[in-house]
Design a protein around this nucleic acid. Structure first.
Lengths: 164, 164
DNA sequence: GAAAATAAGTCAATATGCCTGACGTAAAAT
DNA sequence: ATTTTACGTCAGGCATATTGACTTATTTTC
């Protein structure tokens, strides 16, 4: 019964393909974070500090609640990490001009330097992967990753054009 | 001076492209783990339990040290998580026949069921992304992800052919 | 203008994940 | 017979994150 056999085989291939997708994400993320984590440890920081520094560098003058929205953590969790970064002079806060309740966040010179160091490794890893895979593969990578990302709002961050 | 300007523009595009790569990984991984995390919380488990259940399901009869090698954590960290799963009947251990020092790991029926529930969400997310992006994009996704993964040994897990 | 909502911060208690270091046991390799 | 390996465990510690309760300043809404 070749029909049954090939149907089963298709299902099997599909199952295997999906598992490989899960694992590609797992291994890639694991390796992607390993080196920055090691660097952060030398400052007494953790991965949470990296995420804060990264996104504040990416979106200067962002508010605390925007940052909370991206990180999807509670303000109590953010508080300690952000407080450390502010007290140690990596991040600067200033009241918003339109809404003075807001504390707009910005990297200091020192913060910019740390961000650069931390992300350099990741940029090079991506650059290497992109270079080896080629432009067409990069396009496919983008498409699949955008499909994995859940929210419409987050997907919009990746619209075409250099500066979002 | 058009040369300088276009060179700077190229650098800018490249920088933006690399940053987007970093962020695609961040958002995709964040959303990829959010729902399983919520399910695990209902069992009193964390992401670590999911990883253990996933890989034991993927490679039945694997040894503890093989699992440690994949997870890249210490045996002390694994110990509590694995111990809970064994005591609560999700994972079964048996001495290896060739090397009786080994404890080979295997999911129980209960473990298989939990694994299926947890990964179903991730499989569907991948399936949706693959379906929407198309076969060629999936090929590109694989290429780029493999380029991001550091170790040759880990990349070998993704060689062609259904069963590794 | 008073009441309600929002942005941000704080105190407290708790859980989980992960680490280093030290030590123990059984089995295999040399 | 000694050393190495596979696994486990005790102890102590730090980072990340949670829920819940409460405060302050400012803006919005009625």
């Amino acid at each position: 019964m070749p029909d049954v056999k090939s149907a089963a085989n298709l299902l099997f291939l599909r199952e295997e393909e999906l598992r490989q997708g899960i694992e590609l994400l797992y291994y890639a993320y694991r390796d992607f974070t390993a080196e920055p984590d090691a660097m952060l440890a030398r400052y007494g920081f953790g991965r949470a500090h990296h995420r804060v520094i990264y996104f504040v560098g990416r979106y200067p003058q962002m508010s605390v609640s925007d940052l909370l929205g991206i990180l999807r953590i509670t303000k109590q969790s953010l508080s300690r990490v952000l407080g450390q970064l502010v007290r140690q002079g990596f991040i600067q806060q200033r009241p918003g001009s339109r809404d003075r309740r807001q504390r707009l966040l910005e990297l200091t010179e020192k913060g910019i330097e740390l961000e650069r160091q931390l992300s350099e490794n990741q940029r090079q890893r991506i650059a290497k992967a992109y270079r080896e895979a080629g432009a067409q593969a990069v396009e496919g990578f983008r498409k699949v990753m955008l499909g994995i990302i859940g929210g419409e709002a987050d997907r919009r961050r990746f619209e075409r054009g250099p500066t979002r």
